[in-house]
Each structure stands twice: as C-alpha cells, then as structure tokens.
C-alpha cells in the first residue's frame, strides 16, 4: 500500500533540477512524477520513480543527497468535489504533511499522493472508506 518516494536535496541554483533529471535518465530510471518544494536557499525535489533504490544510488554518485520515504497514493473521483469527498472521510482527520496530484490516471480516477504523519494509521483509516490505497505494483504497472 505504501509508495516509496525519493526526496532529493538541492541548492536553489539554476541547473540543479536538470542535473537530477539527467543523471536519472542516463541510468535508465523512469520519472513518474516530480514536484518541487523550496525555501530561499534550498529545495526538495520529490520524485516517484520506477526504481527508487537505484535512483538514490545514482544520485549519490552524482553528488546529491537523497532519501526514501513512504507516501500513499489515493484514487480520487475525477468529478467536481472528488477531493472534498476523500477528505470528508476518516482520511481527512489524519495529519497530512503535504499532498500533490499524480500526473496520470488509473481506471478513470485521478490520483493524489499524500504524505501522512503516520502512514500506517492512514492506510488503516483508508480501509474503512471507498478509497482503497493504490499499491506500488498497480501504480508502476505501465512503466
């Protein structure tokens, strides 16, 4: 149920995003999603890739520090109020650190990536809803 997400620490300078993408591409790692969070001096690039361990090693060789954390992928109805509906369940009362939209759909549903403070508890909460967390194999099946 957990999706491994790679977070890369980068300095807030031009060319750094390119360095990350280039080294992953050269190693044949497939980028499925990329989002950026930044403060003034530095940023975190959060990636979902088909081979997270390899990604971390490749990035380390390129002189970049990265780490893997678990996130949860939730299907969201692609209609108005879809996200509101998800958050009105028990999931919405969990502590969410951040969330972002995954750039592809699954069986007609949109996908949201959520980082919960307590991932296990959140997955448990999801089980009681109609929003079954998407597992890794399913998310990566077309890559």
């Amino acid at each position: 149920m957990k999706i491994p997400q790679v977070s890369v620490f980068v300095s807030n300078r031009p060319g750094r995003l390119q360095a990350v993408c280039r080294s992953l591409a050269d190693a044949g790692v497939n980028l499925l999603s990329l989002t950026l969070a930044d403060s003034g001096e530095f940023g975190l690039i959060r990636l979902i890739v088909n081979n997270p361990e390899k990604a971390v090693d490749v990035l380390a060789k390129a002189g970049l520090s990265a780490t893997i954390t678990d996130v949860v992928a939730c299907p969201v109805n692609a209609a108005i109020g879809g996200l509101a509906e998800l958050l009105s369940t028990a999931v919405g009362s969990q502590q969410i650190d951040y969330m972002y939209a995954y750039p592809s759909t699954l069986n007609g549903s949109n996908i949201m990536i959520l980082r919960f403070q307590d991932t296990d508890k959140a997955i448990e909460a999801l089980k009681a809803t109609n929003f079954k967390a998407i597992d890794k194999e399913e998310l990566f099946k077309n890559t």
């Binding site: 620490f9 969070a37 403060s39 975190l44 971390v56 380390a60 951040y98």
Partner: peptide
C-alpha cells in the same frame, strides 16, 4: 553540506 542521512522529505524538518 547536507549528507544523505540528513535529508528529509519534509521542508519543515530541513528548516
């Protein structure tokens, strides 16, 4: 310099 074991996915943790 931020080493591998110092990185977190959370902006709050980095700050």
């Amino acid at each position: 310099e931020v080493s591998r074991d110092m990185v977190s996915d959370s902006m709050g943790a980095m700050e």
